[in-house]
Nucleic acid binder design. Sequence first.
DNA 1: CTGGTCGCCTGTGGGC
DNA 2: TGCCCACAGGCGACCA
Length: 275
Amino acid sequence: MPELPEVETIRRSLTEKLAGLTIDNLDIYFEKIVKEPTDIDRFKEIVTGKKIKGLDRLGKYLLLQLSDNYIIVIHLRMTGRLLYVADYEDVTKHTHLIFHLGNNYHLRFVDVRKFGTIYLLKDNELDTIKGLAHLGPEPLSENFTAQVFADSLKKKSKKIKQVLLDQDIVAGLGNIYADEVLFESHILPDRPANSLKAEEVEELYKSIIKIIKEAIDHRGTTFSDYVDGEGKKGEHQDHLKVYQRTEQPCSRCQCPIKKEKIAGRSSHYCPGCQH
DNA sequence: CTGGTCGCCTGTGGGC
DNA sequence: TGCCCACAGGCGACCA
């Protein structure tokens, strides 16, 4: 399930390969993944012949910058993959869209669950995507300050786990890293956000940055689906402290890790050293 | 505004 | 061996 570190790893793995290439043609096998424009022929028509200028990322969204100020926005949701492969490679099951590149390579969108989404927009229309219109600060940017973060939490009575998953508060955290960040900061996931003490908020703030950085260094977390643009798995699954470690001893206090549904999501935490 | 639930999808794995 | 069902989870939509 690609969260910020996974999407960033995909971006890095594809940038050099794609920059400067032209999209000669495309095959669409599952039209519903294209959300904008609603007319699929128009999508094809505009994209054909465009040059890929570069790749950006906003939260969990991947942005393909195209010539003529167009932009393709991709959200991989849970099982989406974006793969750069030679055109003679077998087209695997669940391949929904293929961009034919000018060098006998393909950029393929593969997604078992079909939840992923693709938008084609002008680069000044990004705000028309709801998830981007109010997207919170990037955790590794200077816009994400302890003060901004503390102010957001003060207004929220929801459980802190749920607030961390809210992309409007801070961009890019998903279920895995929300659990890991809370463990790192010794905070229980069901605490109301506005009940955190100032030093806990500070701890949480630092943990978000630390965990996201480490996960990017490890090129993301692979459980089943996630791979980068070259099909390579990540390594951060070997560094997780609570996620998917139910009943295993906590690395800090040996207490068995608990799993519980919180705000509709499976949540992993240590009842011994998170408070 | 809040909180809860559902729908979108398919593969996997446990229980029987 | 096979059937059923819960679960995986990001996010928008919908409702009270």
